[in-house]
């Protein structure tokens, strides 16, 4: 009995996903098609990238509200550098960027913003909620400044390949996401760094007394979250062939939702990357299904909110006797 129960708990996300798919296959003949499958995969790939970073942050008992804005700024920086290059009038220089160079610059922006988040949180003891809330508006403002409030479009075929191309029959965003997920799974389960993330989230005081450098680990975690937001930003910009100043608005909420539905505890130390991937899949399938079933967008939001609540309540019930 107990083993049946614990197995059910262990696979509850997969079971939920399976049930949803079966229901949608019965209700809609458009759901179970190859085309729709790739559609869902492409749509969730950006959320998965961001959510992976968010998972690391939440495992350390933190939160990162700035991922949507970091996504926008790094996408815009990559697009802008690619299209216009960098002009420094005071030094009378002009630097042109290749696709590769522009992407690297975008990632560096994400990473840099993440370092800043981590530095605020560790060095000045600013709560992560506040530090990343500030970054949410700072990076959004910077995006507006950089773009002048207008989209940057016409980025060329090479750049567009990242978001729209196919490789070995699989869309590029899916490739990127799969690589991100594999690296993150290795990082969290097979490395000392990953172990330290869980230890800090589980009991920061015990981790400190065990000689773990808490600040270093936390700064890295926010940095990775920033870099992964930038990865999402580059995929999005490439797919739309346009860096929108308001790209990624409220993406942080979808990411937190995926992490929470995937069973990672907001109080830190418990959860997994694969759980988050399942959470993102549940949200993706739900979105797609509700659209196919012609559910009104207003109802879609309400249903999504209820699913988040349900996931957390289930989680609470499962771990009730631990608290």
């Amino acid at each position: 009995m107990t083993t049946v129960k614990s197995t059910l708990i262990k696979f509850q996300s997969i079971i939920a996903l399976f049930v949803m798919c079966v229901v949608l296959i019965i209700l809609s003949d458009k759901f179970f098609t190859v085309e729709n499958g790739w559609n869902i995969a492409r749509q969730i790939s950006i959320n998965v990238c961001i959510s992976v970073g968010m998972t690391l942050v939440i495992l350390t008992k933190g939160i990162d509200l700035s991922v949507g804005s970091m996504l926008a700024l790094s996408g815009a920086v990559a697009a802008g550098l690619l299209k216009y290059g960098l002009e420094i009038p005071s030094m009378n220089t002009y630097v042109g960027f290749t696709v590769f160079g522009a992407i690297l610059a975008g990632l560096a922006v994400g990473g840099g913003l993440g370092v800043f988040n981590g530095w605020m949180i560790t060095n000045f003891k600013v709560p992560s909620f506040v530090a990343t809330l500030a970054m949410l508006t700072i990076a959004r403002g910077a995006t507006m400044l950089w773009t002048g409030g207008f989209p940057i479009t016409g980025l060329g075929d090479h750049f567009a390949f990242i978001g729209t191309g196919w490789f070995l029959g699989i869309p590029m965003p899916v490739w990127i996401t799969v690589i991100v997920v594999i690296l993150a799974v290795i990082l969290t389960t097979k490395t000392k760094f990953g172990r330290h993330i869980y230890a800090i989230g589980g009991n920061e005081s015990a981790a400190r007394l065990s000689g773990i450098n808490i600040n270093k680990v936390k700064i890295w975690v926010y940095t990775i979250a920033g870099i992964l937001a930038a990865v999402g930003g580059i995929i999005l910009t490439s797919r739309l062939d346009s860096a929108q100043p308001n790209a990624g608005m409220s993406y942080e909420l979808d990411a937190i939702a995926a992490v929470v539905i995937g069973g990672t505890s907001l109080s830190g130390g418990r959860g997994s990357i694969m759980g988050t991937v399942q959470g993102a899949l549940i949200i993706g399938v739900l979105n797609s299904g509700l659209v196919l079933l012609n559910v009104s967008p207003f109802w879609q939001q309400i249903i999504k909110g209820l699913v988040i609540l349900l996931a957390v309540i289930l989680d609470r019930l499962n771990y009730a006797n631990e608290d």
Partner: peptide
């Protein structure tokens, strides 16, 4: 409060300080 990560298993707690030895 300060010695253990209670939600981790015993083997992970034991290797907490000497993680380099199990790499």
């Amino acid at each position: 409060e300060d010695g253990l990560v209670l939600q981790m298993d015993v083997s992970k707690n034991i290797s907490m300080v000497s993680t380099d030895r199990v790499i």
